[in-house]
Computed example of a mutant assay.
Amino acid sequence: METLERILSGHPFFEGLDKTFLELACGCARNARFEAEQFIAHEGDPADQFYLLREGRVALQVSAPGRGAATFLTLGPGEVFGVNWLVPPYRWTYDARALDLTRVIAMDGKCLRGKCEADHHMGYDIMKRLMPIVIDRLHTTRLQFLDLYNAHV
């Protein structure tokens, strides 16, 4: 039987995390499943979950009046989404939609924030893991913007 601790330790985001921190993080984790086309989160909703993608694909989307939803990033196994759990006002800034049957580890954001606050070493380790993801997504968005801009020049 696969335990949450084993699943978390095998996910790229938590890989190599100090065993004590991993045990603390497990207290905030649960398995979750989403059907194809099911929305996981909507822009403006409370960002009280952080997701580690185990199986399936998730589209991150933004909507514009009169234009509908546009996917700006598609994620697969081993990736994470929902980083807004760490930054006030703790609200989703995009929609997340399962593209196929999707299995995740859902991390309770409030629980994880509390544990990071109580143990700043753990908080710093989590932050070091999140920042490259945030920077990479900003870079990807910048490149998409440049492509879009160049296509209309």
Score class of each variant (00 low, 15 high):
Met1His: 12
Phe13Asn: 01
Phe14Lys: 02
Phe21Glu: 11
Glu23Ala: 15
Glu23Ile: 00
Gly27Glu: 14
Cys28Ser: 09
Ala32Asp: 14
Arg33Ser: 15
Glu35Pro: 12
Ala36Tyr: 01
Gln38Ser: 11
Phe39His: 05
His42Gln: 01
Gly44Tyr: 01
Asp45Phe: 11
Gln49His: 08
Glu55Asp: 15
Arg57Ser: 02
Val58Gln: 06
Val58Ser: 06
Leu60Ala: 04
Leu60Asn: 02
Leu60Tyr: 06
Gln61Cys: 07
Val62Tyr: 09
Ser63Arg: 13
Ala64Gly: 03
Pro65Lys: 13
Pro65Phe: 06
Gly66Met: 15
Thr71Ile: 06
Gly76Met: 04
Pro77Ile: 03
Gly82Gln: 04
Asn84Leu: 10
Trp85Pro: 03
Leu86Val: 02
Val87Ile: 12
Pro88Cys: 02
Pro88Lys: 04
Pro89Val: 05
Tyr94Arg: 15
Ala96Lys: 11
Ala98Val: 01
Asp100Thr: 07
Asp100Gln: 14
Met107Pro: 03
Met107Glu: 06
Gly109Arg: 11
Lys110Ser: 07
Lys110Ala: 06
Lys110Thr: 04
Cys116Tyr: 10
His120Arg: 14
His121Phe: 12
Gly123Val: 02
Lys128Tyr: 08
Thr140Val: 06
Asp147Gly: 09
His152Ala: 02
His152Asp: 03
Val153Cys: 11
